[in-house]
Every structure is written in C-alpha cells, then in structure tokens.
Amino acid sequence: MKHRATRRRTLPQARETTNIMAGKSLSHHKINRPYRPTLLQEQTIEKQQKRFDTVNQMLEKVSSKPVNTSLNYNNNNHSPTENGHDDGSEVSIVGYLKAKPIKFQTLDDLLQNFPSVRTALLKKRTIPSSSSCTEAITSSLSSLQITPQARITPTLSTKSAWRTRRTFALVDDELRLVQTIVSGDEKESFGMIGDQPITRRDIRTLRGLTWLNDEVVNFYLALVARDSGTQGNLRVYAFSTFFYSKLSKDGPTHPSWDRWMRRGNITFFEYDLILIPIHQGNHWTLTTIDFRSRCIGYYDSLGGTDDMCLGRVYAFVEHMYATKKQIVPMPDGWRVQPMNMIPEQANGSDCGVFACQFGKYLAREWPLDFTQAQMAQFRLQMIYEIYTKQLIV
C-alpha cells in the first residue's frame, strides 16, 4: 500500500514533467524559418520579373519619344481609363497585366491594349528645353510627312538578277559542315571582315530559336556590304550596332562625328544604300538610308515603328549634308518611311534573322518575299555563309 501511494504522489509530477517537455518540443516546432521557394517557383518569378522589366522599358521608351509623334492627339479625344475617369493618377502596369493578361510584341500593341497608360504618359510629358538635341530632332520630324508605303513609287532596279534568284537549300555535305562549325571550342575564331570578328560562340546563336547577338548581325551585314559595287551590285555600306548607340548618346550633331567618319574611311555620299542595324532591348530592327530614292526606311519584322529613331537618322543625314557638302538645308525630297508591307515574324526569337535578310535582300535588290517558314533554313545558310565568308546568291 505504501508503494502504491508513492506512485500516486509521483504521478502528477511525471505528468507535469511530460507537459513541460511537450511544451518545449512544441515551441521548438514554432521557430520561424526563412521561406525558400522551389525551383519551379523561382523560374516563374524570374519570368514574371522579366516581363515586367520589358514593360517598364517600353514605357520609358514611350515617355522619351518626342511630342510631335503619332501618339499625340487632341486633349478632347484622349481615351479615358477603364473606370471611366481620367484623373492622371499613377499607372500600375502590373495591375493592368493581371486584370487583362495579353501577349504583346511591340510598343504599339501595348498602347493599343492599355489606352489609359498612353493617356497617363502623355499627361506626364514635359516639353524639352530649347537647347536640347531632342527638340531639334522633334522639329525635324514635325516638318516631315511620313509617306504611306502604298504611295511610294518603287525604285527601278539596276539589274534583273533577282529574276533568276533561286531558294538555296544546303546539301548533305554542307549540312555536315554546318554541324562541324557549331561543335568545338566556343572561343575559336573564324576570322574577321573589316573590324568585325566572329567566334564559334557567336555562331551558336544561330542555332534553334536563339536570339542573335551583335557580333553575328554586324559580321553578316559587313559580309553583305563587302560586295559593294561589284558585279552590278549596289554600293552598300553597313554600320555596326555601335553607330546607333553613339547616335542616341551623343546626338546627330556632335563634333566627334567628323573624326569618327574619317577614321572609318566612310565616304558617306558615295553609297547607294546604308544599312543601320538597331538593337533595342530584346528586339532587332533595320534602318536604311537610300540615296537613290532619298528615303530613310525603318524595317521592323513585328510591324512596329520608332519615330525617334527615324528623327535621329534624318537629323544625322542633315548634319552630313551641312558638314560634308555645305548644303543647308538638305535637298528637297527626303522623307522618312516606316515600312509596313514587309515580311513579318510569327515568334519572338527570329527578329535578328529578319533584320539580316532585310539587309541582304535590299542590297541585292530582291523583292522581300521570304516568310517565317524559311527562318530555320536561313539560320543554316547564315552559318555556312559566315564560315565561308561568301553569300549564297
């Protein structure tokens, strides 16, 4: 009996000890630990962040455009917000994307689907100072009349070689050579054309649906321009992507242009056609200066346009007339033209290939009759052409 009583007295103590241990164990499980997303969640977040970054870049591009562009309209006709109120409050593009998810490829698509974004940006615009380069470009644009392409008289070709042009498909030996070219040390060099080098790492961007890098586009257009004036070809010069970067940074009338042109031995007015590749963000386009038709053309495989780009190039041509030929103002008949009756891409990765083919076809005076379905073939051809340093005609 004494033993049982002892057990009864010790039982509450044991229970109390058990509760204390359980409390300690429970408190241990309540420790907050940092949240670690899974790999799939990280990829989703990264894709979403890239999308938002792209939107922000496009919005910055809109707000940096000149006042006298096609995006302007009368205050009485501007679009209200989705709620019916146009109070000019802060615009959250993230909220718009969540409320109305869409797939857009160009700036025009974004503005078309989000009229309130356009309205808010127009309200926030400030008129640039009179001394700024942007105002000079804007004034040049305001004096221009963008000619619809349907009204443009096509320039007569200097030759009829395009009539005998054929679509070239690589044969077995050439396809095996292409496979060999993309395999091996990525740092291996394949030579230069002028001052444009190329390595295997660069050529690999032509595989699959990879975006082309600057080296491939610069090298290929330099290859196009190398045949300038030979065998009845047009006299063509191709600027590198560095040209438009400098034009955007320094402006069209910077004193360094004269030294820059002399160092490159660029006889500006002796060419029939000048090619200007432009890489903005994640998209390739091509701008051309055609001295025969006095037209500055903008070729975008997504069907877009860039008024600021056209204005800068126009102001640069105007500056060249003033400094090289002492002709002020520049001769009549010059116009800017965003080309809209051209082949269009059907994905988000072939813009670089389209820009290169635009340059090749225009330099050869061929009709722009290729399609998205030929892009895979063009990629293989470009690898072969870059390696052999000879264009396929």
Rank of each mutant, 00 (worst) to 15 (best):
S70L: 02
S70W: 02
L71D: 01
L71K: 05
L71H: 06
N72A: 14
Y73G: 09
N74C: 15
N74D: 15
N74Y: 12
N75H: 07
N75I: 06
N76H: 13
N76G: 07
N77S: 07
N77W: 03
H78N: 07
H78C: 07
H78I: 13
H78S: 09
S79I: 02
S79T: 08
S79D: 08
S79M: 08
P80W: 04
P80V: 09
P80G: 03
E82H: 10
E82C: 06
E82D: 11
N83D: 15
N83Y: 13
N83S: 15
N83F: 12
G84H: 00
G84C: 03
G84R: 02
G84N: 00
H85A: 12
H85S: 14
H85D: 10
D86H: 01
D86P: 01
D86N: 09
D87H: 04
D87R: 04
D87L: 08
D87P: 00
G88R: 11
G88A: 10
G88T: 07
G88L: 11
G88K: 12
G88Q: 10
S89T: 12
E90K: 15
E90P: 07
V91D: 02
S92H: 10
S92C: 11
S92V: 03
S92A: 06
I93A: 15
I93W: 15
V94C: 08
V94W: 11
G95S: 14
G95K: 14
Y96Q: 08
Y96E: 11
Y96G: 03
Y96M: 06
Y96L: 11
Y96D: 05
Y96H: 10
Y96C: 05
L97P: 02
K98V: 13
K98Y: 13
A99W: 06
A99Y: 06
K100A: 14
P101D: 03
P101C: 05
P101V: 06
P101Y: 03
I102F: 08
I102D: 06
K103G: 08
K103N: 12
F104D: 00
F104K: 01
F104Y: 11
Q105I: 05
Q105C: 08
Q105G: 10
T106F: 05
T106H: 00
L107N: 09
L107G: 09
D108A: 13
D108S: 14
D108P: 01
D109A: 03
D109T: 04
D109N: 14
D109Q: 12
L110C: 03
L110V: 11
L110A: 00
L111P: 02
Q112P: 05
Q112R: 13
Q112L: 11
Q112D: 12
Q112M: 09
Q112K: 15
N113G: 05
F114N: 10
F114H: 13
P115N: 00
P115H: 01
V117A: 13
V117L: 15
V117H: 00
R118F: 02
R118T: 08
R118P: 01
R118A: 07
T119A: 08
T119W: 00
T119E: 07
A120G: 13
L121A: 11
L121R: 03
L121C: 12
L121W: 01
L122M: 08
L122S: 04
